[in-house]
Design a protein around this nucleic acid. Sequence first.
DNA 1: CGACCGTTTGAGGATACTCAAATCGCGTGG
DNA 2: CCACGCGATTTGAGTATCCTCAAACGGTCG
Lengths: 250, 250
Amino acid sequence: MATSKRIHSFKTPCELCPLRPLPHFREFSRDELEFVSRFKRGELAVDAGSTILVEGAHSAHLFTVLSGWGFRYKMLEDGRRQILNYIMPGDLIGLQGTIAGEMQHSIEALSPVSLCVFERDRLMTLYNKHPSLAFDITWIAAREERILDEHLLSVGRRTALERAAYLLAFLFERGRKLDLFNGRKFIPITQQHIADTLGLSIVHTNKTLRKLGERGLIRWQERGCEVQNGEELMAIAGWEGLGEGKRPFI
Amino acid sequence: MATSKRIHSFKTPCELCPLRPLPHFREFSRDELEFVSRFKRGELAVDAGSTILVEGAHSAHLFTVLSGWGFRYKMLEDGRRQILNYIMPGDLIGLQGTIAGEMQHSIEALSPVSLCVFERDRLMTLYNKHPSLAFDITWIAAREERILDEHLLSVGRRTALERAAYLLAFLFERGRKLDLFNGRKFIPITQQHIADTLGLSIVHTNKTLRKLGERGLIRWQERGCEVQNGEELMAIAGWEGLGEGKRPFI
DNA sequence: CGACCGTTTGAGGATACTCAAATCGCGTGG
DNA sequence: CCACGCGATTTGAGTATCCTCAAACGGTCG
């Protein structure tokens, strides 16, 4: 497999973090920023397709996504895979390992991904010294929960067409808020990923995406999807959007 | 509707909390217990079938379930309902309202439910003064996330029979750890609830449960299910269980 | 007794699945 | 340069799962 991991001790200083200036994120006090900067241990860069964390692993680290796309998933013994959610810049990963002892899901990169690395051991000092950051972590966990609620609603109760529309609208909105689209509104994802997210077969997923394409809402390309009408996708799904104000990240 | 809510200012003192002695929960220091006791504002008792929280509501309170069964759900505009998870003693509810401003799901009681009431405003002092409790809240949120991961895997990738087996094993295990079964291992739930949890129609759910009954794994009764072989249910679903050690609650 | 809720059953049909094969683009090795 | 393999997408055919519609049954409650 052509995957590789590279740990840089080189640190993008948190004061120069490319994410913080985005209007999507809340501003941090100098005090908070300074703590996070010391909390950060290094950076990790992985190639597209490589596994960032494996179910069952005991990782000593927490990560915040700096750039790139990826996804969380679980598998059944016979290989059936369910994608749980997608990771994008600002997302905290590895928290599960803190409460369960080991990871309960795996994480894989869809594109080249870079991550900030934190020492799990020092999480308690964050809770002791910086209640506002502690609250942020709870906030982040609760946000993930909320997204999972929506996915569950989708997989459980929406039709195939609605599900596909919902998922693409969801990914599109998240990408848009993070300013991930430079002109081309391209989501780096495979139809197999869509299928494994929506609980559908790849064949049926293909036929469903084709319908969205015929309506001019998306255009499928090799290894990805270009969204052409996010609002109509939301309308089909009956989805209101994430509707957040600013959100924190560590 | 024959629903009612009663707020008692009467407080079961947290020092005499009937849940804390259970081996399922972690022990609390005197200090923590004292704070929680002051944090608690009263108790709320609701009848079976009544709505505890409604999607869109701005509640000023957080709750911990003291006794009884209930469920969280979301609905689509046309009435399709997805049950997201079940609430049982020790569960914290209403946290979503803290981060999103308003509730993103509704909560309904399956049996008579009693709840400890907390003031949301004072949550920040918890974070400021009691880092260990703050961490517990994160822990609780991460646990909920983990359960949702499992449900999503189930609804997305398991067959109808596997889904039903998983759900009943899940509810059975949770109830067992909370010592909720006095001899009769009875889960107070309707086939419609099962259907809305598993993403199936009521008809198909009925036929699926019937198969589990024929195998002697469960016995269905009016408004509930008696589990007769939890281990075999887990085996059918390929589910390992929640496998937690002790868990905290507020 | 009658209304109502939850459960059960049957029939027919829609949705989504599996199997199979063809196409396409891309990178690799000859 | 070309053949080849590989992964992703596409299409068709036949089938299984699951759905809707409809109706009946049983228990509870007023």
